[in-house]
């Protein structure tokens, strides 16, 4: 690939990154709608609301996803410094933590069920917990796919711009799902009991 072609691709990356940001805005709007819906619903009457203390599993999963964001950052930094082994290593960590988060959320659901907080519930404020986490998990799946994509890419011998671009897209998105989860968790915490 000659230099000008590389330049072209680089130029072409800019709008793609922009697209990603726009996509994140749309999915933020989705969650904003859910949380607003929650507020409208919960204020409907006094017997609505979460009415429980959230299970500890959510604390663990929050720690895990914050950690994964950190490893993602390290991976990206290594890539920029051309330390490709470290890049891969941290990417693996991120991936494992991401999957871990996924299962922790599942675990949290089982705890909720044991507490008698069901999805099918006359107090739909509680059902909302499942909706928030469930729709967020869909985003996690998308994030994991992006992670796998950049991991696979990092084993191929692709040009650095491309490698970096892939990684950057994955990392932006991964930080986004992290922040999204923190938003949701804080929102739930503020509304618990």
């Amino acid at each position: 690939m000659n230099q000008s072609a590389v330049d072209k691709e680089k130029i072409n990356f800019q709008p793609k990154k922009f697209n990603l940001w726009l996509f994140m805005i749309t999915s933020f709007m989705l969650f904003a709608a859910f949380t607003s819906g929650f507020i409208v619903y919960t204020q409907g009457s006094a017997d609505k609301g979460i009415k429980i203390i959230l299970p500890h599993a959510f604390i663990y999963s929050t720690i895990v996803i914050v950690l994964s964001s950190f490893t993602m950052y390290l991976s990206f930094r290594s890539a920029k410094r051309l330390q490709f082994d470290k890049q891969k290593q941290f990417l693996w960590f991120t991936l494992i933590l991401g999957v871990g988060f996924f299962f922790l959320q599942f675990y949290a659901w089982t705890v909720l069920v044991k507490m008698g907080v069901y999805l099918i519930n006359p107090n739909a404020s509680q059902s909302f917990i499942y909706i928030f986490t469930g729709v967020h998990l869909v985003h996690i799946i998308a994030g994991i796919i992006l992670l796998i994509n950049s991991l696979v890419g990092s084993y191929k011998n692709s040009p650095q711009v491309k490698n970096l671009f892939r990684l950057e897209m994955a990392s932006i998105f991964w930080h986004f799902v992290d922040i999204l989860w923190i938003y949701l968790y804080v929102f739930l915490l503020l509304n618990q009991q």
């Binding site: 999915s27 709007m29 989705l30 904003a32 709608a33 859910f34 819906g37």
Partner: peptide, 17 residues
Amino acid sequence: GVLSFPVLVAGVVLLVF
């Protein structure tokens, strides 16, 4: 569109449930 269509999706998801 980008700001409002996701809100419809939220409504539709709850409706589907």
